[in-house]
Every structure is written in C-alpha cells, then in structure tokens.
Amino acid sequence: MPSDLPVDHNPRHQLITTEAGNSCLQLTGSYTLVSLNPSLPAVARELAQLASQPGLYWDLTNIHQLDYAGAVMLWQIWGEQRPDHLLLRPEQEQMFQRLEKVVSLPEPTQRKWFLPVSLLGQQLLRFFDHLAGMISLSGQIVLDIVYLMTHPSRIPVREISANLYRTGAQALGITAIVGFLIGIVLSYLSSEQLHMLGADIYIVNILGMSIIRELGPMLAAILVAGRSGSAMTAQLGVMRVTEELDALTVMGIPHSLRLVLSKIIGLSLALPLIVLWTSSVALLGGLLAADLQVGLSIRYAVTTLPDAVPIANLWLGLGKGVVCGMAIALIACHFGLRIKPNTESLGEGTTNSVVTSITAVIIIDAIFAVAFSSIGIRVAG
C-alpha cells in the first residue's frame, strides 16, 4: 500500500494495532548501510526484542530506501526465515528471495582427537579404491585382448603405432642424455677407487652389471613414467574435460579398446627398446670416461664385456622394461579416466599418476631383484 508518511532518511519503527486487533510493526525511513551505520546495534537490538512477540505483523512497504545491508539485518533478526505475516513491495520481495537462496556457512569443525587415525583410514580406503579400479581395468583389458584374438581386423594398429612413436622415438633424446651422464658419473666414481687398488680392469664388470641389470631399466622407466605417463593421463583428462570420452561412449566406441589397450601395448613394446638404448649410451659414456680417467682401452672393454656380464642380465633388463611399460601405461590410463571435468582435477590426477608410476617402477625393480637374485650373477665359490 502506498505510504502517506513524510520521507525520513533515519531508520524508524513503530508498533501499531491493525483494525483486526493484531500488532503490526511498521518500519519507516531508510534502512541502508549509510543510515544504519551510526545506530545499527541499537536498532537491531530493539527490533530483535519486538520480533520475539508471537503473531507479530511486519510492514516494510513504508520504507523509503532498503539495500542489502538493511535486508540482511532484518533477515538475521527473523532467524534467516520469513515471519508468518510480512508485507513487502515487489523490489523488496526480490531481495529476500535472493537471501533465501544463499547457502549458510558451514559450522566450524570441532577438534577431532582421533584425526591421525581417521586420515590413515581415509588414505587406506582411497588406496583400495584405486586398487580395485586398476584390477577392474586390467580385467577389461584381458577381455579386449581375447576379443582381438578372435577379431584380428579390429586391432588398433594406427593407435599402437602412434603410441610407439610418441613414447619411444620421441623419448630417445632425453634418455640418451641422462644415460650418457649417469655412465660418466658412475665411471669416474668407481675408477678412482679401483685405481687405488690396481684393479682398473674391473671397471667393465661394475659398469656392465650396474647399468645393464639395474640403472638402465630404472632410468628408462622413471623417465618414461614422468614423460609419457603424465602425457597419457593429461590426454585422457583433457578428453574428459572436453567431453570427448562421452562422445565416444555415445558412438559405441569402448574406451579400453581404442585408448587404454593401444597405450599399454605401445609402451610395453617401446620401453624395452628404450632400456636397450639407454643402457648402450650409458655404457658408452662410462667407457669413454674410463678411457680418459685411467686409460682403459675401449676396444678391450668391449671385448671383455660379454665375459664380465652374462647375457641373462640383458634379458632381465628387457623383461623389466616390458613389465614397467605395462604398469606405467595402466596406471596413467587409470588416473586419466578418473579425472573429473575440471582443471583442478586434471592437475591433481596427473601428479598422482606420475608419483604412483615411479613408486610402482621401484617396487617392480625390487621384486625382480629378489626373485631373480640367483640369475645372471656369478658368485665366487
């Protein structure tokens, strides 16, 4: 109803009695931040006392100006809900409708005395959740392999070739540089100690066994996990963000057959070749350093290398490459498919993928070291 009262910029209120005998609190003046600033505590306290009366009518139609500061004050006095009897103008109605949609802040969490135990339990649940997801994905890959054995024409040859190029050929540069430098460092450290004992010829044994059996596969797998594994996770994550995975599902193209299986096959074929390449370059760097440091002939080193290092160590290193390649691709695809359609999840998933892949590589290397401890090692008896 229109107001016949004079305009007053101060916040005022008066309690009147309607024709029906009901108590009505009529607000007049301006309920804005500027007008409320000098007397906000007093006005809020008086209105809160009056609001405690049961069945009170609130009439806001005579307010000259009302902004969100005044609306929030009234909303808090009402206990964040509308009173049973309220008269508003249309523009005031819109303000309170917005306030009704505002989500209240969560209550501060109480201190948990068993917080370390709770966090440990959450981490264990997350671990078993990821483990179950990878087992499920592995089972789907086995089913896809069986399907491809009965339908050879459906083998994703182009996808496998593309993954071989991206994870193998494009990784030759960085693996060669790192392997060459590691070979030089290892040769300098060992040649100094052996030269003091007059056992320079055993540099070949140390370089051959350490690089071919351990360092070569480990370096190659860790570099590929950080380079190719993160790229696989990011690729699947971007496909999730851009809804390309949903489009493949709509078209009836399975993710595991076209995306996951091709990456696993490609990396399991590429990583053994990278291991062989990295070990060769690392041996070359080590022998060059030994030649410069103690004058060990490279021709002599190459001639005695097959006798110093049994061929079983080479096959063991290549076997590590196959297993690590499959594990890295499986972990990368698992985390990639679990990324949610937002950029924060993309970064978190890629980081978790790299960390988990490197951890898995170290665990696989430890398992190989224990399981094949009696193979390829000559023990003096």
Rank of each mutant, 00 (worst) to 15 (best):
L60K: 01
H64M: 08
Q53P: 01
Y57P: 04
Q92W: 04
E19C: 00
N37C: 08
G79I: 03
P41T: 05
L119T: 11
P116N: 03
E107G: 06
F128T: 15
T32H: 02
W113E: 15
V102E: 07
P116R: 02
P54I: 05
A44W: 08
L124I: 14
N62L: 09
R98C: 05
S104T: 13
L99A: 02
Y31Q: 08
R82Y: 03
S35Y: 01
L131V: 15
R89K: 12
V103N: 05
E107W: 00
L33Y: 03
Q76H: 10
G29L: 11
P108N: 01
G55F: 00
A42T: 15
L36Q: 05
A51P: 04
V117R: 09
A132C: 07
E19Q: 07
S52Q: 14
Q92S: 09
Q53V: 11
M95Y: 07
Q94L: 14
W58S: 07
A44Q: 15
D129L: 06
L115G: 04
D84T: 14
F128W: 15
L124D: 00
Q94N: 12
T28I: 13
H64K: 12
T28S: 15
Y68P: 03
L33K: 11
D59Q: 13
L66T: 05
D129H: 11
Y68W: 07
G70V: 10
G79Q: 01
A51E: 10
A51F: 04
S23D: 14
A44Y: 08
S138H: 04
W75A: 04
E107L: 13
N22P: 04
G21W: 04
N37P: 02
